[in-house]
Design a protein around this nucleic acid. Structure first.
Length: 580
RNA sequence: CAGGGCGUAGCUCAGCUUGGUAGAGCGCGUGGUUUGGGACCACGAGGUCGCAGGUUCAAAUCCUGUCGCCCUGACCA
């Protein structure tokens, strides 16, 4: 059951999607739902096996939790609301609601609340490899963003941050285990600092497979090795001063239906970098306050950084309410600080300049010639304007870790993510134990995920050529692909089978193509499927007492190797390329 | 959710504007010729044209509704 096709399916665009389908690894069932055919399943089992070995070696224990999670569990942490439409909901015959598990923090915290009885049991680290469900707004790219996918998730439990039994020690162990896992899989990856995200928590790292097609951007400092994702990446020190004398008068322009930076810049004859982007936000929770974040027109506001600068969580202001408060959404300028009670934070790069283009605080109008010192001196002198780094980092920004060094941008696919959760779930769900001194203490948690099925796709994304997939030996469905030519002649098929048996006796996984096909399709299929070593057995090669040996990663036709040596050669080729 | 697009044979698609016998290539089956990088000839099987209404003598084609899918964005362990 390796249904290869000559043509790519109409819905596939990315190489991993195209090749996994064409090479007969997967077939689509519905949007974001796939059959894992035998080839894919073999690879997934190999990835899972590596994950198990490293997790077990790091002291974790495997268990299996249910897919179906009663909705009440989510209500405890309000994640039924936080997750929103991302949560798959099902209703049973009694009208009771349940969710198809997108992750299992609630289930395991609930489990632990009933099973953890003493501080003496710490630390604990439990994991499972399971099918997860997320009702993605837009599933895409084959196995990369599915509604149903295979994930390894682990949860650790502690009473302290430090010490042998503490969260930090387990977190570090998981970091090392993840490094081992992805190295053993043969992936080119980076571990980067990340925002904790809606799952909550304090510290986290993402493991990204490096490839040009990646969905995520990461920034790295070549000098210090610092690496972080866009949301998290810090920017080095930037010089700034309000002291820029005005060079132009403020002039108002009619800019009908142009709320976007690009269109306005073109209309005004300036570049986006000469404009100010003023984003209206507000603090979340009770008694929200208005916050206006100002960045240069070509930059993007980073919500997390605004939060840090303001000292409170913020969100994009709902448009209707902002309008009611007097903000001309799409045409806002920093001068709103004189008209509305608000907190203003300006990015350093939006300070340096003598004549900015900005909104006019009036629908369909923009100004040119805005000058901070001249036009906003009262607020600035009163100390009402904060300057802080509040934008996403970009390639070319100064490194936060090495003076003089510049950040570089790379693309990646997230395959692993580790978090320090803290007590968010244990507090919400009443997971606590008595410590040595009879004090009731909330349990501190960590959680650690790996997208198993996504790892397969990321691997193909990282490792393919114009002919198909180039599988790393450790997770290839088979190690050796024996292609028979004219299998019915001169006992060729029997000789190929004997060779396969010898290889299998060495513990190698062998796929033998004994189809009654012409050589062309067989070679094409072999390239497509991407097994690391190809051995071609034909009457011609057998006449010389040899088989043709070729690595998938190498070009050309390969070399004739005597049958007496080919088993050793194939075995060592595989072993050499398996990471310890 | 917004914008755009697509549902016709297992796959990739044409046919629809202008209503009138259901098409091609690939794949599949049989026979033959072939046999080291997706061969050739002959014959053949295979389709409720996504679904439901409507208009019409007549609907793949026109109208309405509905479902599914894809792309860009928003969103995203």
């Amino acid at each position: 059951m390796i249904p290869t096709t000559r043509e790519a399916p109409a819905d596939a665009e990315m190489p991993s999607h195209i090749y996994l389908v064409r090479a007969g690894y997967i077939r689509r069932v519905g949007a974001g739902i796939y059959n894992y055919l035998p080839l894919a399943w073999r690879s997934l089992r190999k990835i899972s096996q590596i994950v198990r070995e490293e997790m077990d070696a790091a002291g974790a224990s495997e268990l299996l939790m249910p897919t179906l999670e009663p909705i009440e569990l989510f209500a405890g942490t309000k994640r039924d609301v936080d997750y929103g439409d991302l949560l798959f909901r099902v209703e049973d015959r009694h009208g009771r609601l349940a969710a198809l598990g997108p992750t299992h923090e609630e289930v395991i915290t609930d489990l632990m609340a009933g099973a953890l009885t003493s501080y003496k049991q710490f630390p604990l680290n439990l994991y499972q490899i399971q099918t997860k469900f997320r009702d993605e707004a837009r599933p895409r790219a084959g196995l990369l963003r599915c509604r149903e996918f295979i994930m390894k998730d682990a949860y650790s439990f502690h009473l302290d941050l430090d010490g042998d039994a503490g969260l930090n020690a387990t977190y570090d162990k998981m970091y090392q285990a993840y490094t081992n896992i992805f190295r053993r899989c043969g992936l080119d990856f980076s571990a980067v600092e990340a925002e904790a995200g809606p799952i909550g928590g304090s510290a986290s790292h993402e493991f990204m497979v490096n490839c040009v097609n990646g969905e995520d951007t990461i920034l790295v400092c070549p000098a210090s090795g610092y690496a972080a994702n866009v949301e998290k990446a810090e920017i080095g020190e930037r010089e700034w001063t309000w002291d820029h004398a005005a060079t132009e008068p403020v002039k108002k322009h009619h800019t009908p239906n142009m709320p976007g930076i690009e269109g306005v810049a073109e209309h005004l004859g300036v570049t986006p970098a000469q404009m100010l982007k003023s984003i209206v936000m507000r603090t979340t929770g009770k008694d929200p306050r208005w916050v206006v974040a100002v960045v240069r027109g070509d930059h993007e506001v980073n919500e997390g950084k605004v939060r840090d600068a303001v000292g409170a969580p913020v969100e994009l202001a709902p448009e209707a309410e902002a309008r009611k408060a007097g903000f001309a959404i799409g045409y806002v300028s920093p001068r709103m600080i004189d008209r509305v009670e608000l907190t203003m934070v300006v990015d350093p790069d939006a300070v340096n300049g003598s004549a900015w283009a900005t909104g006019s605080d009036e629908k369909d109008h923009h100004d040119t010639g805005f000058n901070w010192q001249r036009d906003l001196s009262a607020a600035i002198d009163a100390g009402k304007v904060t300057v802080a780094g509040i934008r996403n980092a970009e390639a070319g920004d100064p490194s936060p870790r090495a003076a003089g060094s510049l950040l570089e941008a790379r693309r990646g696919i997230e395959v692993g993510h580790i978090f320090k959760l803290g007590t968010k779930y244990s507090d919400a769900m009443g997971l606590s134990v008595l410590d040595k001194s009879q004090q009731k203490r909330s349990v501190i948690m960590g959680c650690y995920g790996i997208g198993v099925s996504r790892t397969l796709a990321a691997c193909v994304e990282m490792s393919h050529d114009d002919h198909g997939i180039v599988m790393p030996p450790a997770i290839a469905p088979y190690h050796i692909h024996i292609v028979t030519i004219k299998p019915e002649e001169d006992g060729t098929l029997d000789r190929a089978r004997a060779l396969a048996a010898e290889l299998a006796a060495r513990g190698l996984d062998v796929l033998i193509d004994d189809r009654d096909e012409r050589p062309g399709p067989k070679f094409k299929d072999a390239d497509l499927v991407g097994i690391p070593v190809r051995l071609t057995v034909s009457p011609k090669s057998l006449a010389e007492g040899a088989a043709e040996f070729k690595l998938r990663a190498d070009a050309g036709k390969g070399d004739l190797v005597p049958l007496s040596e080919v088993v050793d050669k194939a075995e060592s080729a595989i072993l050499e390329r398996m990471m310890p």
